[in-house]
Structure formats: C-alpha cells, structure tokens
Nucleic acid binder design. Structure first.
Lengths: 340, 340
DNA sequence: TTGAAAGCGGTACCAA
DNA sequence: TTGGTACCGCTTTCAA
C-alpha cells in the first residue's frame, strides 16, 4: 500500500516513503473518484458512454491531483510511438546540425519529437545505439553513415530507416533513401561564372562524394570557352581552404569552386590577409549554404541543400511508415551573393 | 496465434499477416527454445542460475531470431529511463544548438540519449510538450525559458527540471538552476582593453539580461581613466550590429563591446565595407564564443560560456536525480583574438 | 536450476 | 452507462 500526501501548494502528489516524485496514475484517480479505471479513461479521453456529472467529477479529480499520462505505457500498449530517431555526424556547427534542427521543427508540427544520437565509430556501437531506441522510436532518419553495409548493421532492428544524403549506399538497398543531386546547383553556379566572363575555373576539394556532381556539371558545359583546373586537397575544413590560398592564386584562376563553405571561408580569410579582392580578382563559390555565408566579408555564394524538401519527405515517411523501400532525389540550388 | 516466417537471408522475423515488422519478444524466444520467459531473461542478462547448455541454446535462438529488447517496456517496468529531455530556443545556428550538441555528446558517454524539443510560445503549449515526455524522460534540461513562472507551468509534471542560464528565474525557485556569471569574462575583456590603451568603451546591446554583467564589470574598474558609453539597440542579431556601425564610429569610441557575437559580426561587415581597420581604429569584443569568431575577418574576440562545466553538471544531476533543488554558478571566460 | 505470476500504466474489448 | 479484465514486453520475487 502506498500513502500519498499533498505536496505543498503546488498540488503535486508525492509518495511519503521516498523523495522521488510519483506520477499520478489512472488507478489513483479511480480510487479517489470511487470509479473504475475504465471510467476514468473514458472521461479523460472524452469518449461517450459516461454521465456528465461523473465525467466532471473525474476531470476535476484528475486536474486536482495533477494527472499526467505516462507516454511510455501508452506507446507500449498501442505499439507505436510519437518519437523519431535522428542520427547525425559529429562535426560541430556543420550542416548536420542545421538539417536536424529543421527536421526537429517540422516533426513538432506533426506531433513528433526527435530522439537524437551521434553516429558511432564502429558498426557495433551504432547498432547498439539504435537497439537502445527499440520500442521508443518507429522511424530513424540517418543524416550520417559510414562505409558499412546497412543490411548488416541494421539486421533485425525493428525501426524503419531513412538514409539521407548518404551517397555510398547501394541503389538496391532495402531501406528508404533520400538523395541529393549535387550537380544541379553546381551547374547553375558554373553557368553563372561563365556568363560573367570567367574562363579559368578551379575546383578545390578531395576525391570524394562531391566530385561526381562537379564533374557532371562541368561535362554539361563542354565546348564552352572555359578551362577546368583541379586543385586537390585532403580536407574540407577552414584551415584547408586557408592553406590553399597561395597555390590557388598562382594558378591564375579567375573563379574557384570549393567543396564546402568552410573551405571557402578559409580562402576568404587568406584573401583578406593578402589583399586579394573578391570577386574582382577571383570569384568564389562554396557548397552547403552555411548561414555564415550571409555574414562573411564578402558574403559567400554557395550551393544550397534542399533541406525543406528532404525533411518534409521524412515527416511523410514517419507518418505513414511505408512498407517498401523508397528512393527519391532532390536537386540542389545555386545561391548568388557578393563573392561572384 | 501468430505465424512467423524467416524474412529472407537477413534473418528478420516478420508477422505473415501484416507488413509491419514485428519485433521479436522474450516470449517468442521462450517458445522457440522451449523454456520459460524467466529463463530466457536470465540467459540474456547473464545472470546465474542457469545451465551452460541451456544458456547457449537460448543465446543462439535469440541471435538467430534477431532479438532486440523493447526499451519502452523495460523503462515502464523499472520506472526509470535512459532518455533525457533537452529544450532549446528556436534561433538557428545560435548558441543553443552548440550547447545542446555538446550535452548530447556528454550524455551518450554516460548511456543517455536526448529527446529534444523547441520551447513553445505559450506556457500551455510548453507544458503539453513536456507532458508528452512523461514516462519517457526523468530529467529535462531547459536551455531556454520565457517570462513564465516555472512553478505554474511545470506543476505536477513528473520530471526533474534543470534551468540553464535562464536569468529571469527567481532564486528561490524549487527547480535546479545552473547560472552563468557573465561579468567575470566581461571584466577580463575590459581589463584587456584598458591595458591596451583604450579609454572610450562603448557597449551595444539591449536593456536586458546581459546588462547586469557588463555593469558589474564596469563598476569594478571605477576610477580608471576610461569612459563608458552606452549605445542602446533593440535587437541582438547581425543586422542590428551592421546598422549600428555609423553611430558607433561617430561616437569616437576606441573599443566596443557587443552583447552577442552576431551583432559584432554585423559591425565587422560594416567596418569592412567602410574601410575601418579593426583593431587599429576600434577594438571589438563580442559575447557567446560563436565558432565563427575563429573564421571572421578579423577573428573575433569574445566571452565564452562555460559549456563544458554546465553540461557536466547536467549529466551529474541526470545520473543521481537530486531531490532538493540545487543552484550553481559558473563563470564566463574572455577569449582574445585578432579584433582587439 | 527453473518457472509461475505479479506488476509497471494505459487501452479497449466484452459482458453486465 | 459502467466495470472487469486481458493485454503491450520486460523485470523480479517467490516458490517449486
């Protein structure tokens, strides 16, 4: 038997035995109101089949005792949940964070809340994390992934998985995939550079996932009077762009396309220190649409991810839990600012 | 009765009746292995009191069937959870995001996962959101709050609440509070400005929470040969700092302290366009330690929040669920970069 | 060494 | 209009 006492004026109920706050349950309300649990349930759910007087009594008792339904119990019984998993990468201030923040806002509109996690370094650890979410989360959106076989890592996990912009996943993967067509925005960027009279266009970046988009974009301009130069670099961070400054200027390029905005910002810093004028001496385009591109000196032209479209799709999948794996591609967009 | 079938080579079990993936339960493993649920539980939990042969059989069956424990059910039974609520503000790319991302990483180290939400506009909506987390989350860290009485909004919610850097909360509030002493870092910033020969120091910001820290810092330098000027501004964003540029330069100040880094970045842009040299013409200090301060031209001196200390404290509270409300204050720190 | 059974809190079918 | 009760999946006490 448990004894309860009013907990000062804020009307919170506590167990006398422990300091732990006991949440009020349907059973307690039923005892208080002298009815059955089922009746309390009906009153709170505003279902029919209950007298107005009794309903009022029960609602008052519930309010007085400060009843808060236990969502874990409800989810268990209904075998569904209002939580959605989001897995992101670790890089601070990276686009992952913006993407997941946008998704968070969209999910809330539809009554879902995100459970967030950072992608682990080993497939075992990643799997463990996702297992920890079993029963709490029906859908998991993966904004980051590594060179693992999804089928192996996710075997027998009960959730629905949505891979977002994870290019290494094979097309016949049996999980949902939302892909991003990097080349569309890059194409527009290069077109803009060509039309504004630039002819020696450098790409700075690593041999990685973003190459294909750039190559595809460049190919579609074959025959135009422009030269494509590649300066390879391992990294994709601010420092990498900064260090590239010297060799970049020596290449006599009149436009440069960076694989990430962060690299572009690094080059902006180099240019600022070296007295290079942008865009007069060289035009600069980044990739990611980091919000800081609005504020840099000069503001940075870039290629934007289709964040809104991607996240709306995730919300849609969350709501209907599609049985068969879906694949959908959204295009990127060129954003013109001061640096071109 | 439910029928199961092997789901192709990945060994996932499905109910034949529906497309919905049925998670394998202890009961199913028990039936498969011909033992009781309790025995399966003992085997999986690696408890004593079970024969080695039987344990091996059960573990194999569980692995073969792809057993994933249902955390919602476990939490319900144990009346505790491995999830922690985090409530943030809405501003994109704001410090909220960095704080919560750091907390996320620290929580994961201790086996917790965040459930994240954005602070709603009305107290009712905020309360509804937190109710939705009842039973899922034992502790909620609030990185944002409004001008509401916590006692009223949070009445009878079963979780433990930690207010982080929410200055308007009264000291005798019966929830945990982690406060930030803004003046300590500002004091060091001003000291640096004085020692580097500046004497006309402007503060740009709104009459709000951050005033006190600045005033306190200035007071401790009374008697020194320096003049304090206040330029009041409503906002705290990039545009606000940009717009302030003109009147700021007209004030003949030789140093300026902004309430937020974002405002400082706005002023940096103005200075860049107007040909004002920083720090030669005027020294600039921001507040928040936005990572972009490393990359701006020039890099921005600022005052940093004690994010690590605050978040370690939250983790500690999460782990021991303190019964009595605790209040703790951490100091801010001056970060010197190119702009001073 | 094993298993039956009583919960955790909420939902909803079925009978009264 | 009501209430009894069997779940959801997991944990743990207690008895065999």
């Amino acid at each position: 038997m448990t004894f309860y006492a009013m907990y000062n004026r804020c009307q919170r109920w506590r167990s006398i035995e422990s300091d732990k706050i006991m949440a009020v349950t349907l059973k307690q309300i039923a005892e208080e109101a002298g009815v059955s649990i089922r009746t309390v349930n009906r009153a709170l759910k505003e279902q029919t089949g209950i007298g107005d007087v009794k309903r009022q009594e029960i609602l008052e008792a519930a309010a007085r005792m400060g009843y808060i339904p236990n969502i874990a119990a409800r989810n268990l019984r209904l075998r569904k949940s209002s939580f959605v998993g989001i897995v992101t990468g670790t890089v601070e201030n990276d686009i992952f964070i913006r993407k997941s923040h946008d998704l968070q806002q969209r999910l809330e509109v539809h009554g879902f809340f995100p459970i967030v996690g950072i992608l682990q370094n080993s497939p075992e650890a990643a799997r463990t994390m996702l297992s920890e979410w079993a029963g709490m989360v029906d859908t998991v959106a993966l904004f980051a992934w590594r060179d693992w076989l999804p089928e192996d890592v996710l075997v027998s996990l009960p959730q629905q998985f949505v891979f977002v912009d994870c290019p290494m996943i094979s097309p016949k993967c049996k999980f949902h995939q939302i892909k991003i067509d990097r080349s569309s925005g890059i194409k527009d960027a290069i077109l803009f550079l060509l039309e504004s009279g630039r002819s020696r266009i450098v790409r700075c970046g690593s041999i990685g996932s973003r190459v294909e988009g750039v190559e595809k974009a460049f190919r579609s301009f074959r025959g135009r009077d422009a030269e494509k130069i590649l300066i390879e670099t391992g990294g994709s961070e601010f420092e990498d762009g900064y260090k590239l400054g010297k060799s970049l200027m020596e290449s006599k390029a009149d436009a440069v396309f960076f694989d990430t905005d962060r690299m572009a910002f690094g080059f902006l810093k180099y240019a600022w220190e070296a007295g290079i004028r942008i865009p007069d001496d060289i035009a600069v385009v980044g990739f990611d649409d980091d919000p800081w591109g609005n504020y840099s000196c000069p503001s940075l032209s870039t290629v934007a991810h289709p964040i809104a479209e991607v996240n709306e799709k995730i919300v849609e999948l969350t709501e209907r839990r599609s049985a068969s794996a879906e694949t959908i591609i959204f295009p990127t967009k060129f954003v013109q600012r001061q640096s071109v």
